[in-house]
Design a protein around this nucleic acid. Sequence first.
DNA 1: CCCGGAATCAAACGATCGTTTGAGCATACG
DNA 2: CGTATGCTCAAACGATCGTTTGATTCCGGG
Lengths: 207, 207
Amino acid sequence: MSASHAALPTKERILGAAEELFARHGFEGASLRQLTAAAGVNLAAVNYHFGSKDRLIEEVFRRRLDQLSSRRMAALQTVSGEPDTTIEQVLAAFIVPALELSHDGNGSLFMRVLARAFAEHDDTLRKFLSENYGHVMRQFTAEFARLLPHLNKEELYWRVDLVTGALTHAMSGFGMIQRKSDVTEHVHREQTAQHLIRFAAAGLKSP
Amino acid sequence: MSASHAALPTKERILGAAEELFARHGFEGASLRQLTAAAGVNLAAVNYHFGSKDRLIEEVFRRRLDQLSSRRMAALQTVSGEPDTTIEQVLAAFIVPALELSHDGNGSLFMRVLARAFAEHDDTLRKFLSENYGHVMRQFTAEFARLLPHLNKEELYWRVDLVTGALTHAMSGFGMIQRKSDVTEHVHREQTAQHLIRFAAAGLKSP
DNA sequence: CCCGGAATCAAACGATCGTTTGAGCATACG
DNA sequence: CGTATGCTCAAACGATCGTTTGATTCCGGG
C-alpha cells in the first residue's frame, strides 16, 4: 500500500518515513524502531547512514528547507526593490512556496514538523535553523521595512512575528479549516494562500 | 533556590514542576523521574496522587484552563451583545486573560504547554480540549459573527483561526519579541496586548 | 574468478522509561 | 493505648529507548 517501499534507496526511504513519523509523534515520540519498520529497512541503517538520530533530524530539515528557502528567495527577487512592489506580492513570495511544498511528496507533513520544532523550543535546533535559514527572514523583513516606512523597528518586528505565527498555524493544519471533499487540493491551496495574504496584509498595513 | 520546595502540598508541587518541565521538554520528553526530583517528592507520588502520567497531564491543563476560560467568558459577557460593541473589545476579552495568566505563578510557561499541545496533534488531548473548553471558542466566534455580518461562515472561520494562530504564537514566546530589561513586565504585557489587538482587529475587519 | 569495500542483517548492550509493590511512617480517632 | 488511614519511601518490574557489534550478503574492478 505505502508507496515508500518502492525502489527508492535506503537513505531516501528513511528520510520519508522520518518526516511522517516526526510530524505524527514528535522527535522524541517517534522511535527508530517504528521509523525503520515503516521505511522497511533495518534498525541499524539509521546509525549507519546518518550517524545518529539527531543528525537524521537535521537532514529531514535540510532536505526541505533548502528548497523552500531558495524558492522563497527567488520569488522575492522577482518582486522586491521595484517602485510599485506591493505588500501582497511580498507575502505571496513568502507563503506560496511554503504551500507548494505540500504539493510534492509528503511535504505537507513537513510543515507540521516545522511547527513542532518551533513549539519544542529546542535551543540546538533553533540555533541550527537561525544559522542556516535566518537570512531569508531578514531579507523579507527588510523588504517589508521598505514598504512600511512609517513603522518603527519594534512595530515592524512585532507584525512580522504575528504574520509568521498565523502562517505557521495555518500551514501546519492546526485549526478547524480542512479541505472540503468537493474542492481539489490545488484549489484549496490557492484559497488558503488568498485568505492568508489578505489577512496578513491587513494586519501589516494597519496604521 | 527553587521556591517550589516550600510548604506547598505534594500535589501542588508536582503540578508546578510538571508545568515547567512539560513546557521545557514536552510531554514525552519530560520523565517522571526528572519531574519528581524537581518537585522534591518521591517517584511513586505521581501515580499515587494522579493515577498515571496521562491523568497528570490532564490536571495540568485543567488547573489553568478552568480559570482562563472563566475569565475569558466573564470578560466577554461585559462587552458582548451591546449595540456599540467593538471588535477590539472582544479581542481584548480573549487576549488579556491569557496574558494575565502569565502574571501569577509560572502561568507563562503554561502558554508554551498549550502551544505544544496544539503542535502535538494528539487526538486524545485535542478531544479533551474540545469537549471541555470548545464552548468558549464558539461563544467568541458567535460574537465576531455578529460584529462582522458581511463575512460568510468560511471567511469568518478562516480569520478567527488565523487570529488564534497569531495569539498562540505570540503568547508562547516563539518569536523574536522579548521583553526589554528597561520595561516592567506589566508594561510589556500591555504593549503585547496592544500589538496583538491592533494586528488581529485589522485582519478581521479587512473587507 | 576472486577479492574488498559497501550495505544489510539479527542480536545484544546499557540506560531509562512508566508503573507497581510492600514495608515504613505519620497523624487522628475509638 | 491501639489501630486504622493517608501518605512516603526504596526497590524492583517489564518494556522500550538509541546505539554498537560482528557476521553475512551484495556487487563491481583487477
